[in-house]
Design a binder for these strands. Structure first.
Lengths: 335, 335
DNA sequence: TTGTAAGCGTTATCAA
DNA sequence: TTGATAACGCTTACAA
């Protein structure tokens, strides 16, 4: 109950004023005389004092909280980014986690609570959608947050006017398409994810573009959730068709894994490629052809921008994906 | 800078006192007259007011923050639990995430900051170790936290005197050993993880116990990190030996995946079993024999206890694992 | 039902 | 260098 040790208690025990105690425990360095300094430190130690960072935030008008907003922390794409961001934030800040469960209005809510709480920064890994109304509202909320002195960093599309880490989804998917055609694949399907999700859309567009450069086009494009189950379902649906392509591009690794499960269940032979190169999935067999994004770097870079002093103008860091050809698309018999 | 909308501003605009504004925006229901109520709500809406939960916490002497402490949010074991816990906490609380990177002293630090901040609850998924000094200190810190009015829930070993979700690691590993022997396996190795980690130790002990019931014992036990790379290294080391067992138990799935990668690289044929049944890995091929823990339930149960009113006495919920035999241990040629 | 005012644990201004 | 004391944004007796 009343067991919270307060700075006032520390001050009393050290025989100094509250102000002095505050200075030594938190404030600037040289201001307090060595004698008092030691006494305060000793008292704090004896009492087991830990600063109440909420009270500090109220008094200072700013906090060291960084809000991380992700659609789903269980998805390895986000948990890898989150872990890397944590490592950067941890030493000097605290991380508040928000998951939107892919509901857009939650993003708005988080940004405004973070603002009310004068959080130091907010990092949004939520993927942008085609919903312009929402995007505009979110951009406004972010602008307000920044106007209030906070830092905002977005990983994904560059639509929110904030500092951004921008994976080059189109280019990566295009390169993948080229590589697959050059590997000898001739007919293609796309498991395109949700039609409203820009990340998915960019990858689809890039892939189609790449195919076009080689004079080809996908024979089928199916939409589904951006999840393992989405990939499984879409692939099952694809396999129910009369003719099936020899090679299927799933717009992310998690979907690709689901798709491969469906393929395996049916005992058919279809090449599958993904996107992201999720570390946890690097050991699956057959190993997955994919486009590697430097997820850890992305998390680190976003967090670094969040912890930096705000620059003069906003930064957009582009990160490119690297095509990794592995066994899941190796042609064996169709040669 | 000063763009933070304050309750005082809302009150002024609505032409009511701060107290009244506070009552309608946050406080109890029926206390405020309908007229004033509406005016306050309108003012809050117009100004875009969002409560500063930190200030609320300071004023109330308690907050709705729940601290979640995990060794590594990238590890799917923890991210699955975290996601499930989030879903329970989210509606009425906020989640603060702490990762210890498997450094024990971090756990202590988190518990005391959570205490200083009068967090509503703390959930620790950190695994217990054989370090009794640390365990005692942590138990003390938790006791203080609870004495201060907070709720503490632990997922893992029942050593900290808090409400606990306790996976029956020994029993699960024992059942696994029995099942493997009954499947026809004859010689066994164990990738035992860190020797100081109780979870790993319990699983090793249970497995050995199970083997003993069938009159067998492991021919080799190797320690390593509790990670994918740990599994890879330990298995590589094992494969360097003159004789290798026909079946290897890795004390968690992530290690098992690393071990399978090592096996595959060498082109040898060794059965591998894991523990946890990580959802993300259910689709790997060959599918992994393992002991399924209901990770999502565990996260949900822990979070529910954290959000509950404290019960009269502490609760320990035991959850049992279920052996799932899959392809990774299927005997084909050795029959 | 409403308002006044005294807190909550800190920080920060301003004298001393 | 130190210490009163007024903030910070909010809640909550206690009065009115």
């Amino acid at each position: 109950m009343g067991s919270q040790v307060t700075l006032a208690q520390v001050a009393e025990r050290a025989g100094v004023s509250l102000a002095t105690a505050s200075r030594v425990v938190n404030g600037s360095e040289r201001v307090v005389g060595a004698r008092f300094r030691e006494r305060v430190l000793a008292a704090a130690e004896e009492l087991g004092y830990t600063a109440n960072t909420f009270a500090q935030a109220v008094a200072r008008g700013r906090s060291d909280v960084v809000g991380l907003v992700v659609p789903d922390i269980q998805d390895p794409y986000f948990s890898v980014i989150a872990a890397a961001a944590m490592a950067v934030v941890e030493p000097s800040g605290e991380m508040m986690l928000g998951t939107t469960l892919r509901r857009q209005e939650q993003e708005l809510r988080y940004v405004s609570t973070m603002r009310a709480r004068q959080a130091r920064a907010v990092i949004m890994v939520g993927s942008r959608t085609t919903d312009n109304t929402h995007t505009r509202q979110l951009a406004e909320a972010i602008a307000e947050f920044v106007a209030g002195g906070g830092r905002a960093v977005v990983i994904g599309q560059d639509k929110l006017g904030a500092d951004t880490v921008l994976p080059l989804n189109r280019a990566g998917a295009k390169d993948l398409a080229l590589a697959l055609v050059d590997q000898g694949h001739r007919s293609f399907g796309i498991l395109a994810g949700p039609s409203t999700l820009l990340t998915a859309k960019d990858r689809v567009d890039g892939f189609i573009d790449g195919l076009a450069r080689r004079g080809r086009r996908p024979s089928v494009i199916l939409h589904s959730d951006f999840t393992r189950d989405g990939g499984y379902q879409a692939m099952s649906q694809l396999l129910d068709r009369r003719t099936t392509p020899g090679c299927v591009f799933a717009v992310n690794d998690v979907m690709a894994i689901g798709a491969m499960a469906a393929v395996r269940e049916r005992g058919v032979k279809i090449a599958v490629a993904g996107f992201d190169d999720i570390p946890t999935l690097r050991d699956v067999a057959p190993s997955l052809t994919t486009v590697r994004l430097p997820l850890e770097d992305m998390g680190r870079m976003a967090a670094s921008m969040a912890m930096d002093e705000p620059g003069e103008r906003r930064r957009v860091i582009r990160v490119k994906g690297e095509v990794i050809l592995r066994d899941s698309t190796t042609l064996v018999r169709n040669a």
